[in-house]
Amino acid sequence: MQYCSASSRSGITRSRRRIPSGFGIEIWRGRRAGVLRTVACAAVLLASGCRKPVEPQSDVAIDYAIRPQPVRIGPAILNVKLRDAAGQPVAGARVNLEADMSHPGMAPLFADAKEIAAGQYQAALEFAMPGDWFVLIHVALPDGRRLERQLSVPGVTSN
């Protein structure tokens, strides 16, 4: 079975743009200038700064695989492997799954994964509707730390 790696070591960093100090502001005057400046600043800040915060790096890698492929409506099995920085399996974790459709307002699925071998966890999901799904893997490590990964399951088809 081929696993997809979702290690968070490859964290993404995004640069934040700065507004040049003399950004044509001098040409605006009076009360209107204040309003325009506020709107312009808000727009620039929204465009450049409003990104989701990058998750802090973790030394635990989460690999997962789902079958059958392609995924169809009905039962599916999700396998999750947890490895520490040395590549050793992480046993004794609690792994919960939550599956959501890409459209809001649809029924989510929940499942608890069982540890079938050291560091290997398995859960059954029952996809009820065709379409694009996302599976959230919630991991509670034995030392109390919590991790979350998002798995995209696009184009679940009807049988």
Partner: peptide, 8 residues
Amino acid sequence: QPMDMRGT
């Protein structure tokens, strides 16, 4: 028809 919401 079966509802099927895909962006893909």
